[in-house]
Simulated scan of single mutants.
Amino acid sequence: MPSPCDPQYAPVGDVGLVLMMIDSRLKGIHDGKTETDAEQQVLIRQFTESMGPNGADDVLDGACTLIFMFMTWLRKVHEEHGKDVIEYVVPNLVASMRMMPKSMPTEVIPSMAGLVVSAGIGLSPNLWRGQYGDWTDEEMTPLEATAFLLAEHINRIADDPDFATRMITEALTDAEEN
């Protein structure tokens, strides 16, 4: 019997918008910028404002889908080397989160770690999180930061600053073609 948190039951959301946000942050960090480019912030704000009533849910679902896709890739890479993705990714991720107190309040770290663990064991992060009620405002930035940290981790493993973005873009293109 499949789990109610099985990814087949999860909405995909707006992965493209979330990927654009993550890519912008990654490029900004690698270019030595600590703040998001003002022009990029305007574009993201305009796009977000243009979304319909379900727009915020689409962004949340898209972020969770992205986390799931990143963790699926990480799980496969770790399994190829006889390692457990949870054992190797989650502690480093939590340590990184703890170093970001402005973006990642301590009280949301367990939820973000839970999202990553759920994705790491093949469950839908958004359906897993949905069991515990509505998303809170305090979880919005940490959700984006979690996706960012996973993308950066993947880029470091691949030794390619654009690998995570390219991997997702290719997966989305393949999905559209099929």
Rank of each mutant, 00 (worst) to 15 (best):
M1G: 12
P2R: 15
P2S: 14
P2C: 09
P4C: 06
P7M: 10
A10V: 04
P11I: 04
G13I: 04
D14K: 03
D14M: 04
D14S: 09
G16F: 07
L17V: 09
L19I: 02
L19R: 01
L19A: 01
L19T: 00
M21A: 11
R25K: 11
L26M: 05
H30T: 03
G32S: 06
G32K: 00
T34Y: 01
Q40N: 05
Q40M: 12
V42I: 12
R45H: 11
T48E: 10
G52K: 08
G55I: 06
A56P: 00
A56M: 10
D58C: 08
V59Q: 03
L60G: 06
G62R: 05
I67W: 03
T72Q: 04
W73Q: 00
R75D: 11
E79P: 00
G82D: 09
K83M: 09
Y88G: 08
N92S: 15
N92E: 14
M97V: 10
R98M: 12
R98N: 11
S103I: 02
M104Y: 13
P105C: 15
P105G: 09
E107W: 03
P110C: 13
M112Q: 15
M112A: 03
A113R: 09
G114L: 03
V116D: 00
V117S: 00
G120R: 00
L123T: 00
L127V: 07
R129N: 02
Q131M: 12
Y132G: 06
G133K: 09
W135N: 05
T136L: 13
E138A: 12
T141I: 14
E144M: 13
A145P: 01
A147V: 05
A147G: 11
A147P: 02
A147F: 04
F148L: 11
L149Q: 08
L150C: 05
A151D: 02
E152D: 14
E152Q: 11
E152W: 06
E152M: 07
I154W: 02
R156T: 07
R156K: 12
D159G: 08
D159I: 10
P161Y: 11
F163A: 13
A164N: 02
A164R: 01
R166C: 10
M167W: 13
E170V: 14
L172E: 15
T173I: 13
A175N: 15
E176G: 03
E176Q: 14
E176T: 08
E177M: 11
